[in-house]
């Protein structure tokens, strides 16, 4: 199982390494947001009760998380490609564990998310964002973005496998991305949100990762927040990967 996971991961990483441009292009969007929103909403911190000193400091985790959601939502497209090309069938008729196929997808997605998140964190820093707690905060942020990305990789994979239609995967991605990010504390402090929005945000995994990340980025780490929200996020990610592995069975009933 471990060996198979490794070789299947190796295959995808090699493909990624062959086209590094893909990673760079997908980064353009979050980078534009970072500088656009960073400038546009600069004065927001002056609102009474916002609670942060610099909006850029506040924004970096928001952009990292938004990128993790949007990048991983496309996982289902790759799955559909592999089904149409026959690659998935080839693996399924070989003595390969279903879990190994899905694990490889998750690992590759997490690795590219990590790379992208790191670049955003560094660009934010170059633009003047502060990480007062030192290296720990940014590292925790990157790790949390990987876990959040896994939630959406699993979801998108399961969805792609179930519907096998590119349009539906694109639709799901567009449908979820903006509401999930704006119904969270990515761009606006919780205390300034309408009451109902605070309620929705409490159940939003994107917000869990943000609260955990902000807990880790603070000058003194908010451990209960980091471990509590992070734990829920991890549990959800595991559930999504499991669900996604289950969809192989559904797929094989239909072929």
């Amino acid at each position: 199982m471990i060996r198979q996971t490794w070789w299947l991961t190796h295959r995808q990483l090699k493909a990624l390494a062959r086209q590094p441009g893909v990673l760079v292009i997908t980064l353009m969007q979050p980078v534009v947001w970072l500088f656009l929103f960073g400038n546009l909403f600069r004065r927001i911190v002056d609102l009474p009760g916002f609670g942060a000193g610099s909006y850029l400091d506040y924004l970096v985790p928001g952009i990292v998380v938004m990128n993790a959601v949007s990048a991983n939502m496309w996982a289902g497209m790759t799955t559909i490609d592999e089904i149409e090309r026959g690659t998935l069938d080839r693996f399924l008729t070989a003595p390969v564990r279903r879990g190994a196929i899905m694990n490889a997808n998750v690992i590759v997605a997490a690795a590219s998310t990590a790379l992208q998140s790191t670049i955003i964190v560094l660009l934010g820093w170059a633009a003047g964002a502060h990480y007062p707690g030192g290296v720990f905060g940014p590292v925790a942020l990157v790790v949390l973005s990987m876990v959040l990305g896994t939630v959406f990789t699993g979801l998108s994979n399961a969805f792609g496998m179930a519907v096998r239609q590119r349009e539906s995967v694109i639709g799901l991605s567009i449908f979820l991305l903006l509401p999930l990010t704006f119904l969270s504390t990515a761009f606006m402090a919780e205390s300034l949100m309408p009451g109902w929005m605070q309620g929705v945000a409490a159940a939003n995994p994107v917000n869990w990762s943000l609260e955990a990340a902000r807990g880790a980025l603070a000058a003194s780490v908010d451990w209960p927040m980091l471990l509590g929200r992070g734990g829920w996020l991890l549990a959800l990610a595991a559930a999504m990967v499991w669900l996604s592995t289950l969809t192989f069975g559904g797929y094989q009933r239909k072929v």
């Binding site: 295959r11 090699k14 493909a15 026959g86 690659t87 069938d89 080839r90 008729t93 070989a94 003595p95």
Partner: peptide, 16 residues
């Protein structure tokens, strides 16, 4: 699975 070789209509060699 161990005993068979399968050449499907789309065998899905990785194009990259």
């Amino acid at each position: 699975r161990r005993a068979i070789g399968v050449v499907a209509q789309n065998s899905g060699a990785d194009p990259l």
